[in-house]
């Protein structure tokens, strides 16, 4: 009973963090929300996977947050790019999007539980929320950091659900490498363009 209650708290935390990720324009808040999101995901993952495997995912996630944070900190004087003027930038628009995702997740959760019994409602709800929020995130932004955050959110949601049906250590390891790789690629793309061309390599 208590475990179920904590699982629903984790789902609430996921809703809060994914909303923060979508709304905030301050990268510090975004990365803080991502770190908290990994904590909630860790709890839901350990409902089906051993504690050690869940911990590995948590640590990997936090490493990604650290990598992105350190990179973004080093380029804090980035010029603001006005590339997203096409999309509505209002926070209410994004809140409405998250509400739609929440409603869709609420509507689908019980159906998935009926189709795949034993997963647990909080696990499914948390996973669907993350997948939906990740997709929304990818849909409304083309800024590098935001795209990476969207992809990481989506992958975390997928990992919660997939962890419940596939417990292979190899896949868990590969998925950890994928998460870490996305963090490193994101960091690389953030700093790309800030280095002068190497004359030997250019020639």
């Amino acid at each position: 009973m208590l475990i179920n209650f904590i699982s629903w708290i984790a789902v609430a935390l996921i809703l809060a963090t994914s909303t923060t990720l979508l709304i905030t324009r301050d990268w510090r808040f975004s990365l803080g929300a991502l770190a908290a999101q990994y904590l909630a995901a860790f709890w839901l993952i350990t409902r089906h996977l051993p504690f050690a495997m869940g911990s590995a995912k948590l640590i990997t996630g936090w490493m990604v947050v650290a990598a992105l944070g350190m990179t973004r900190l080093g380029i804090s004087n980035l010029e603001e790019e006005n590339v997203e003027s096409f999309w509505p930038r209002g926070q209410w628009f994004k809140v409405v999007l998250i509400l739609i995702v929440t409603l869709a997740a609420a509507g689908t959760t019980s159906r998935i539980e009926a189709a795949i019994p034993g997963l647990g409602l909080p696990v499914i709800a948390g996973s669907l929320l993350l997948i939906g929020a990740g997709l929304v995130h990818l849909g409304v932004t083309s800024e590098i950091l935001q795209v990476i955050l969207g992809l990481l959110t989506l992958l975390t949601g997928f990992e919660i659900l997939y962890g419940a049906v596939e417990s292979s250590i190899l896949v868990a390891g590969f998925l950890a490498v994928t998460n870490l790789g996305l963090g490193i690629v994101g960091s690389y793309l953030l700093i790309a363009g800030f280095y002068p061309a190497d004359t030997e390599e250019q020639a």
Partner: peptide
């Protein structure tokens, strides 16, 4: 696809 001296474009994203 994106050398260190080049800003990433939309294609790579």
């Amino acid at each position: 696809l994106v050398p260190p001296y080049q800003k990433p474009g939309k294609g790579v994203v």
